[in-house]
Simulated assay, not measured.
Amino acid sequence: MSARTHTRTPSPSFGGVDTRLPWWALVLPVAAFVALFLLIAGPDGAPATAGDPTVGRLLEQIQQTLPH
């Protein structure tokens, strides 16, 4: 009696690599974006950095060193 062999169907991905993302690979970046957006857009976000000139100087230095 012969045994049945299982044949694999060709996957649509390139090189046989699984291209599906886990659920957290989309949720975590979206949650981080929303959290940062809420920090920036909040009414208390802008005055909190106004009292610390170090952050402003650091941002100016980064802007000056980056090519335009």
Rank of each mutant, 00 (worst) to 15 (best):
L28H: 04
T7S: 02
R4P: 11
D44Q: 07
L66K: 03
A50T: 05
L39Q: 11
A31W: 13
F37K: 06
A48Q: 11
S2T: 15
L38D: 10
T7Q: 05
D44I: 14
S2C: 07
W24L: 13
A31S: 14
F33L: 11
T7C: 00
W23H: 15
Q64F: 11
L39P: 04
T5V: 12
V17H: 03
G42E: 07
P22L: 02
Q63T: 15
I40K: 00
R57S: 01
A25I: 10
G45C: 06
T7E: 03
G15K: 05
W23A: 13
V30T: 12
M1W: 12
F14A: 07
P43H: 04
Q61Y: 09
H68K: 14
G51F: 05
A46Y: 06
L38E: 05
G16F: 06
L66V: 13
A32D: 01
S13T: 14
P47A: 00
L66H: 09
V55Y: 01
R8V: 09
L59H: 15
L36H: 07
G51A: 06
P67D: 05
L21E: 08
A3E: 14
L38W: 02
L38P: 04
L28M: 05
D44A: 14
R8L: 06
P22W: 12
G42D: 05
L21P: 05
D44R: 15
H6C: 01
H6Y: 08
P47C: 00
F33G: 05
L36T: 13
R4E: 13
R20L: 13
D18W: 11
P29T: 07
L21Y: 14
S11M: 02
R8M: 04
G51H: 03
L21G: 06
P67S: 10
L36G: 10
T54Y: 03
D18E: 14
M1Q: 07
Q61K: 08
L66S: 04
V27K: 06
S11R: 13
F14Q: 12
T65M: 10
H6W: 06
T19M: 04
Q64D: 15
H6T: 15
L26E: 11
A32W: 07
P10L: 04
L36E: 07
A3T: 08
Q63F: 12
T9K: 04
G15C: 02
T7L: 02
R8A: 02
V17Q: 02
Q61I: 15
P47S: 00
L66D: 01
L26H: 13
W24K: 09
L21F: 12
A31N: 07
T54G: 07
T49A: 09
R4A: 04
L36Y: 10
T19V: 07
T65A: 10
G42H: 08
D44S: 05
P10W: 05
G45W: 08
T7V: 09
Q64Y: 10
G45Y: 02
F14W: 07
M1Y: 08
L58W: 15
A50S: 10
Q64N: 13
L58C: 04
L59E: 08
V34S: 00
P12D: 06
S11W: 09
T65V: 11
S13K: 02
P29Y: 01
T65D: 09
L26M: 12
G16V: 09
F37N: 10
L21D: 11
L58V: 14
A25C: 05
L28S: 02
T9V: 10
I62C: 01
A41D: 05
A3F: 09
T49Y: 05
G45I: 11
H68Y: 12
R20C: 00
M1V: 14
